[in-house]
């Protein structure tokens, strides 16, 4: 078995995961998104001229992020555990598929689905921008960067959902993943709080602040809504951070799954 064969198996598994998500009508969330965004764009176009862009970018990107996080968590927790429960895994693992290849393939399948979903939503956001501002501006490039960061968030959320579901129930995994998303979105505040706290509390706060995924650094929505640029250093830092963080969570999931007796 050469490495080409290995990579192609991961690709096949990823594609099958994507196909399953599409056939399970996951992309239907786009309809709700489109309705929300066009409603907001029309409404805001009626009432004001100055804050139109601000509202559309803020609301649009926040919706992209929340819709995606919900999808990432709800599919992520079932990626592997559902296949164990339904025993669809039996006939996959009795083929030349390593368990880690299966986990990584499933992960890529879900993140691929989210990339496609985000891409389609991004088109919606830019159409809404065009509708309210009648033209594109140079600062709209930063909206693309914000969208890229949102995709990085999805990588981490998917990896965490997969990690939690490798040892706990679907419900608990969803709760853990969502809690980490909320806490991680406040990571910068936590870090600030940790700096001014002393003693044991300070240690604990510091540990938590640096262990939870730093979603706040990945959230530049209000910044780009105001048209402020995103420093190149942050783009690089965030990319490396998100890749490392999700790789660690996936490795954890693989380590647990590799030892697991299927029911």
């Amino acid at each position: 078995m050469n490495s080409g064969g290995m990579n192609s198996r991961i690709g096949y598994i990823a594609f099958n995961t994507f196909r399953e998500a599409v056939r399970d009508r996951v992309l239907y969330n786009l309809i709700a998104f489109a309705l929300l965004l066009s409603g907001a764009a029309i409404l805001v176009g009626e009432i004001s001229i100055d804050i139109e862009r601000l509202v559309v970018v803020n609301l649009g990107l926040t919706a992209v992020s929340l819709f995606g996080v919900v999808i990432a968590i709800f599919i992520g927790i079932g990626l592997v555990s559902k296949e164990i429960d339904k025993r669809t895994l039996y006939t996959v693992l009795s083929r030349p598929v390593r368990r880690w290849e299966f986990v990584v393939g499933k992960f890529f399948g879900l993140t691929g689905t989210l990339v496609v979903n985000t891409f389609l939503m991004a088109i919606g956001v830019f159409l809404a921008l065009l509708y309210v501002a009648h033209k594109f501006e140079k600062m709209d490039v930063w909206v693309l960067v914000a969208l890229y960061f949102i995709v990085l968030q999805f990588l981490i959320v998917c990896a965490l959902a997969l990690f939690f579901s490798s040892f706990s129930t679907p419900l608990m995994s969803a709760v853990f993943s969502f809690a980490l998303f909320v806490i991680g979105s406040l990571a910068e505040d936590l870090r600030g709080f940790a700096r001014i706290t002393h003693g044991v509390g300070g240690w604990v706060a510091t540990a938590i602040a640096y262990l939870v995924p730093n979603f706040s650094a990945l959230n530049v929505i209000s910044q780009v809504a105001h048209g402020d640029p995103v420093p190149g250093r942050l783009i690089l830092y965030n990319t490396v951070y998100a890749l490392l963080y999700s790789a660690m969570a996936i490795s954890g999931a693989v380590l647990i799954f590799q030892r697991r007796n299927l029911k």
Partner: peptide, 21 residues
């Protein structure tokens, strides 16, 4: 040994498959 798997076939008890396919 991973090489074993390409030379064997397995029918599980009450098999269940991806129902979207």
């Amino acid at each position: 040994d991973p090489r074993v798997k390409s030379q064997i076939g397995f029918l599980p008890e009450q098999p269940y498959f991806y129902d979207h396919l």
